[in-house]
Design a protein around this nucleic acid. Structure first.
Lengths: 346, 346
DNA sequence: TTGAAAGCGCTAACAG
DNA sequence: CTGTTAGCGCTTTCAA
């Protein structure tokens, strides 16, 4: 059986409460040195470890936070979770992790389970509007921070990123490279997809390039989606074919690149491709991928810090983190990029 | 404030203990129907949710398990964790996740924290021998299941996979394809690396191919390692150059393939490549990668099931899960593979 | 069929 | 400086 305060008290010949005092106030003033030494010695000898549940029961604080995300089999989210963990550790707080795999009922269930477990707070990537009522209920009882996306009808703070701006930067980059027919592979029924599409549109507008709906292809975030969309694109008559495509994600872009290569199109010479996310693979592709770097781990880190603030002070601000255009070779030949970098450094 | 048993008791006009009885024994015999109804009604009305910590305190059971792995930014491990979660959910048990990022001190710390938190059991991917003494101590107090690799000096059961056999199958596959000079990119100071190297050696021996140390290159599991090892390999004089290489991981293989392509070598025609792991990317590469499929999610699922068994019965067996050769195009041209499949189906 | 009472291990006033 | 007391929310004998 684990040793308890009582055991130490007996061993040290003091009261339980004195033991508690010694153990909790690292530099306590209110304990005689001699006593302190005895207690510490006994604790050491009996290799005492506090019972977190008992402590939690009385302090109403578990040092446990819950995380609810759709999945981990997605390097994007796993990096975010990693970021959460990093800060959680600094705050010596543990992470209870739940992945609902895009199942609305599970998302709801996990949120509730987390509340029941008595976690101090929840970091949540909201996916289903159907769970808004539940979330409204929960956020009254427990601090919540939304990540990556946010239901604005909740009062809980969020940590997101400039998706729209990222899409704008990506598209602008292609336009500045001289492309006039820029396609977009993306999703129209998804929050991030919509924002990225919006950024794409804004760039076209600002650079006075007419919007051609034929150049927008529905495609999700998987490799296969990109591959398929590229196949569709290649069916366009030669004179309508775009010379560049902005993809909603790096995996999509990768699939597209493979598809283009298979069709005999050189990337970037005959088809420039830009992705979104800046996953590790972007740098490893045969033609390294130009993309938009999203704050993956940072989102997690900031969210955890905000949650902590919210738990302690009851308040915290939302933030929208910045994104960055990462220029590699899939959008331009290295000759061009060398010229560009000379211009920049010159 | 959350509603407690006391609130319900008052609302229903019964004792706290009766409430507890009703709520815990779904089909209890020992409560009058009328009473049961009143209690259930009150619980409903007050939207009661049990306080897990209080319950845990008295039952000495938290329905919490701990998972300690090196990292999540690794699709291999994130799939395993996903597998653990799947079964954990069925057992309605939550997962406390810790990633130590290959830091021995943290691994030790997390293991202890987990014990302190009062988790019912731990699933652990052991990484550092320096933590064996601690583990020996811990396994006396709390059920532990090792995954992916195992310290045999612990009595804790493990769930691993046939790495040696996988390496054997990969190498054998290349040999059967007619390759006589098969290189190996791998790690010599890592458990999995050693096993894979062993399997490679065994295949050579069984097929009476002399072992040439010049063909073994030290390379870790990252893309860059494969890329670098391939560069080294290409420095060999033409007559010594191997025609095939078995890599210790899919990322390594990917890096190698890119390196070969950049050097003008066609894969698989001039250089056959086989990986290990069967990550999602293996199927997406320009030349889909032949590889060894490891039970990633299954390892997690089985481990969680075993841990549960161990928690409940005190005993459970170790297992070594099987692996599978997945033949794609990086090891053989599609003509050959077509011929092969005809042979198989004919 | 129900309730009273003890206690899980810990913290936190309040006295001494 | 230290001990006494009460209680967190729940389960669980043991009686009634």
């Amino acid at each position: 059986m684990a040793t308890t305060l009582r055991d130490i008290a007996k061993e040290a010949g003091v009261s339980i409460c004195t033991v508690s005092r010694v153990l909790n106030n690292p530099k306590a003033i209110q304990v005689r040195d001699e006593t302190r030494r005895r207690v510490l010695g006994a604790a050491q000898r009996l290799s005492y470890r506090p019972n977190i549940m008992a402590r939690g029961l009385v302090k109403k604080r578990t040092n446990l936070i819950g995380v609810v995300v759709p999945s981990l089999t997605n390097s994007f989210l796993s990096e975010t979770v990693q970021g959460i963990q990093d800060i959680a550790e600094e705050l010596s707080c543990s992470v209870l992790l739940y992945t609902h795999r895009y199942n609305p009922a599970k998302e709801a269930e996990y949120l509730q389970v987390l509340r029941d477990k008595g976690v101090d707070g929840i970091i949540w990537m909201p996916m289903f509007e159907s769970n808004i009522p539940l979330a409204l209920e929960l956020e009254k009882e427990i601090p919540i921070v939304q990540i990556h996306t946010a239901f604005k009808s909740l009062t809980s703070p969020y940590v997101t990123a400039e998706h729209e701006k990222g899409a704008y930067l990506a598209t602008e980059h292609l336009i500045k490279l001289g492309h006039h027919r820029v396609a977009h592979f993306g999703l129209s029924d998804d929050i991030h997809g919509k924002l990225r599409h919006l950024g794409y549109m804004r760039a076209l507008t600002e650079y006075q390039i007419p919007y051609d709906p034929q150049l927008v292809f529905e495609a999700g975030y998987d490799w296969h989606n990109g591959y398929a969309a590229a196949q569709e694109l290649l069916k366009l008559p030669a004179d309508l074919r775009p010379t560049a495509v902005f993809c909603c994600g790096d995996m999509t872009a990768w699939g597209a690149v493979e598809s283009f290569k298979k069709a005999g199109l050189a990337v970037p010479e005959e088809m420039a491709v830009v992705g979104f996310d800046d996953l590790a693979i972007a740098a490893w592709m045969e033609v390294p991928l130009t993309t938009i770097a999203l704050p993956k781990a940072d989102t997690g880190r900031v969210a955890m810090a905000k949650l902590d603030e919210k738990i302690r002070t009851g308040e915290t601000e939302s933030v929208c983190l910045d994104v960055r255009l990462v220029i590699r070779e899939s959008s331009q030949s290295s000759r061009v990029s060398n010229m560009l970098s000379q211009v920049q450094t010159g």
